[in-house]
Design a protein around this nucleic acid. Structure first.
Length: 97
DNA sequence: GCTTTGACTCTCG
DNA sequence: TCGAGAGCCAAAG
């Protein structure tokens, strides 16, 4: 299992309507490679299978996305997550761990 | 095979 | 409040 596969596996576990952060994923992998996590999601070949839009920055910001952050924000809002000015509202409540 | 870059995060002035 | 620097890992040049 590659590093990427592990990242994707964790990302897939995030339930609908919730989000997680790069940091949390890295911690579950027992590593501090936050950047590598983002890197893995960036080039994930399982775009529809892995809900990479549920992975955000540690401060609740969306950050950047390959398909456009705006698009991802819309997607998250559809799942019941509210976003204001590029930031997730009630971040702690929708945060998955 | 070494260097650069990136969807990151933390700490310090 | 905000920018700079450092630390971390994988992929691309």
């Amino acid at each position: 299992m590659n590093f990427n596969q592990k990242v994707w596996a964790i990302a897939k576990k995030v339930p609908k309507g919730k989000v997680t952060t790069y940091k949390i994923i890295a911690e579950k992998l027992k590593t501090k490679a936050y950047r590598a996590v983002g890197n893995a999601l960036n080039k994930n070949p399982y775009a529809p299978i892995v809900p990479c839009h549920r992975v955000v920055n540690s401060d609740g910001r969306i950050g950047g996305f390959a398909t456009g952050a705006k698009n991802k924000i819309k997607l998250l809002q559809k799942e019941g997550i509210k976003i204001k000015n590029n930031k997730i509202e009630n971040f702690k409540k929708v945060l998955w761990r």
